[in-house]
């Protein structure tokens, strides 16, 4: 009797959910029947995010596969692991073509900045040494504000996690020597606000070859292992030993149809005289994820080629107003 009561109670009540963003941990109680969209909207409202279309809630499903929560399905119907609280990472899922043209709100830019910086420092994105130093100088400006020669404590930067380890290992330089180089550029960013420095960071980072690419392990008909890269602009095919320069690219505008059948994935070009590109992935689950990313990126690609919606126009006007107001305040100071 008690047992059946417990089950009934569970099915009508709520369950604890933890959502980890790159700068906060949020805890909610979600109704048992809540959809992915209910949770996603709750997170966006809580952090004041309106440019919601770039983001998603990521989790490892009960089979250990990385998944994005579907918005139109119940949270509980998506193979989430039986852990308490149920935990999701709120992350950038789609990238714009140009950060400075498209990202409007400060909170959006900040979340992009944190995620891209983490990917560079973890070496998920290859970053050449010179770009690593320049990026570090913007990261320092964003964190500490203007360089001040009189109050600057030598060693401050040397102790920070500012450069990818691979870059440090490539040179015979002491921490102080790295600090000196970063400092030269840090000093050059004087008067830049946090959001300006973070935007400059993103402007440099978006030129890196691996920025904004979702890589998948695939093979072609000849069983040659390759990488498929899904990006804001289209699909890239890379040779296994070179994730930087694609061997072939398909812009979204050149693709007529994308589909999969079990482990086989088919890309049909607009030009009907061109052959279809067929590849194989290791799991159907992976093909589902690839298709989901293709659809999302293609939607955004099409949307960018139309006039801004009323909501985006308002958001841009508000952001512009807010920035000029702050600029006037800073000038007064």
């Amino acid at each position: 009797m008690a047992f059946s009561f417990l089950i009934r109670k569970k099915s009508t009540k709520s369950f604890p959910v933890k959502v980890i963003t790159l700068d906060a941990e949020l805890e909610f109680n979600l109704e048992w029947r809540a959809t992915g969209r209910d949770l996603f909207d709750l997170v966006c409202r809580t952090i004041g995010l309106r440019e919601t279309w770039y983001f998603g809630l990521q989790y490892q499903d009960s089979k250990g596969f990385m998944s994005w929560l579907k918005l139109d399905k119940k949270v509980h119907d998506q193979g989430i692991p039986q852990q308490i609280p149920t935990t999701f990472n709120f992350l950038v899922k789609f990238y714009p073509e140009d950060v400075s043209e498209e990202l409007v709100q400060e909170v959006t830019q900040h979340l992009f900045y944190l995620q891209v910086k983490q990917a560079i420092l973890r070496m998920d994105i290859y970053c050449p040494p010179e770009a690593s130093v320049l990026l570090a100088s913007y990261a320092v400006q964003a964190k500490y504000g203007d360089y001040d020669e009189t109050s600057y404590q030598p060693g401050l930067l040397a102790s920070e996690d500012l450069l990818p380890q691979r870059v440090i290992d490539q040179y015979q330089m002491t921490p102080e020597m790295w600090e000196d180089r970063i400092k030269i550029w840090y000093a050059d960013h004087k008067t830049m606000s946090r959001d300006e420095a973070e935007m400059e960071y993103l402007k440099v980072a978006q030129d890196l070859d691996m920025y904004g690419v979702n890589y998948f392990d695939i093979s072609n008909k000849k069983e040659t292992n390759l990488w498929l890269g899904v990006t804001a602009l289209g699909l890239n095919i890379y040779e296994k030993e070179n994730k930087l320069a694609p061997k072939t690219t398909f812009a979204w505008s050149e693709i007529r149809h994308i589909s999969f059948d079990d482990k086989k994935f088919i890309i049909k070009p607009v030009d009907k005289t061109s052959p279809n590109f067929v590849f194989f992935s290791q799991k159907v689950r992976m093909n589902k994820l690839i298709l989901d990313l293709c659809i999302g990126n293609h939607d955004l690609f099409m949307r960018r080629r139309k006039p801004d919606s009323m909501e985006v126009q308002q958001m841009k006007a508000q952001a512009k107003e807010e920035r000029s107001r702050r600029q006037i305040e800073r000038n007064k100071l």
Binding site: E130, L134, Q170, Y171, D188, M192, S193, E196, E200, K203
Partner: peptide
């Protein structure tokens, strides 16, 4: 305060040159 891509290209070239003498052999 926004930086042009020209600024960034120049900065990257200058940093590259300043690091050059310290590269590990084969680096």
């Amino acid at each position: 305060n926004t930086r042009s891509s020209g600024y960034h290209q120049k900065a990257l070239a200058e940093i590259r040159n300043s690091l050059l003498p310290f590269a590990n052999s084969g680096g």
